[in-house]
Design a protein around this nucleic acid. Structure first.
Length: 353
DNA sequence: TAGGCCATCTGGTCCT
DNA sequence: AGGACCAGATGGCCTA
């Protein structure tokens, strides 16, 4: 599933990576040119042997043993006769050319590694955009992005398998399994979850959430979470175990007064991908950056690929028990028979009706 | 100041 | 041989 997800975002990732590489190639080339100028080494010269300062470097230079034989002979008896000769492969002197060549190799490898990591980060950024909570300014950490993506996929699979819409609480529970508490709070906020409901829901293990002093208010909440993953994070400590502490969120989700349903008629609504269910919440701050706070909730609508078939999701978010549609193929069937997951547009507005 | 997250460098291993 | 991938080390930045 994950690989399929990656394959879907791959074109974007590749494009972004290509852009990035293009942007940075000049710099790299410049750096390389500088190196070459400094070393006065062309490619042929770079193939000259050199002794690395480590095993890897000497292995890297190992292909040039024969070319370097003469040089070895030249400097082979540096020890003179007073010291016994060591067994094993001869230690080769690290000539200036070898040192330079090693440096150039290392620089090239570093540049490749940087590019590789940037590509990986681009892919992660794309993944961030398709998981339920997305912000350009307050990114989920890498690990949280992967966890949330996994949960999201599992949740969607569960929906397809059951053919019915879960209530928000259940959905958030699915999404937040194993996530840090700040991220859990964030997801809950993105889904406009009123903690009066949320916190009294059963945990998957049957225990009840308890939050003596909820950071959420009925009409609005403002929880502080300047870093989504805090030192308080306890992996495996149980999802959705919200406590009544503030985690420093920079977001504020505003509920309709007295209501638990999101107000998607809000002027802040920015389209199907990004209903701004979380508003800038830094109190006393109204910077441009804050105005750009922007979270999206992608899991909001779901239709099957079959024409005219809609999942029987109830409008209230309550489970429509026993409403499993037999027209909905089992999840594994969906997985096997559809090359693509349901379009994200279809997934949006899932809770928007 | 400790801890989390991140970018980068580096050396090792595997593959083509 | 060279590149991709990986993991460890390191240092910087940020926040509680």
């Amino acid at each position: 599933m994950l690989s399929r997800l990656f394959s879907e975002v791959l074109p974007d990732v590749q494009r972004l990576a290509a852009d990035w590489v293009e942007d940075n190639e000049n710099e790299d080339d410049k750096a390389k040119d500088e190196d070459h100028e400094r070393c006065h080494l062309d490619d042929d010269e770079l193939d000259e042997p050199q002794e690395g300062s480590s095993r890897a470097e000497s292995e890297m230079a190992g292909d040039d043993d024969e070319d370097d034989e003469a040089e070895e002979e030249e400097c082979g008896d540096e020890n003179g006769g007073d010291k016994p000769k060591k067994r094993g492969p001869k230690k080769r002197k690290m000539t200036a050319a070898r040192v330079e060549r090693s440096k150039v190799r290392r620089l090239k490898a570093n540049a490749r590694e940087r590019t590789r990591m940037h590509d990986l980060n681009s892919a992660l950024d794309n993944l961030r955009k398709v998981v339920p909570c997305y912000s350009k300014t307050q990114k989920l950490s890498k690990i949280e992005t992967l966890r949330l993506a996994k949960n999201y996929i599992l949740a969607l699979g569960e929906i397809l398998r059951n053919g019915k819409r879960p209530d928000v609480v259940t959905y958030v529970q699915m999404l937040c399994k194993g996530l840090s508490q700040p991220t859990t709070n964030l997801v809950a906020g993105c889904l406009q979850l009123n903690t009066r409901n949320f916190l009294t829901e059963q945990c998957p293990d049957g225990s009840r959430f308890h939050m003596p002093s909820s950071p959420f208010s009925v009409h609005a909440y403002s929880y502080r979470c300047s870093r989504l993953s805090s030192p308080h994070y306890q992996p495996g400590a149980g999802a959705l175990n919200l406590r009544g502490h503030s985690y420093g969120s920079a977001y504020e989700a505003v509920y309709p007064p007295g209501g638990t349903s999101p107000d998607y008629s809000s002027p802040d609504y920015e389209g199907q991908h990004s209903p701004p269910v979380c508003l800038p919440g830094r109190q006393q701050e109204s910077s441009e950056t804050d105005r750009n706070y922007h979270y999206s909730m992608h899991y909001s609508g779901l239709t099957t690929s079959r024409p005219g078939h809609n999942l029987p999701f109830g409008p209230s978010g309550a489970r429509s028990g026993g409403s499993h549609s037999e027209n909905i193929p089992p999840f594994h069937d969906v997985h096997l028979h559809h090359d693509r997951a349901p379009p994200y547009e279809d997934l949006n507005a899932f809770f928007h009706n």
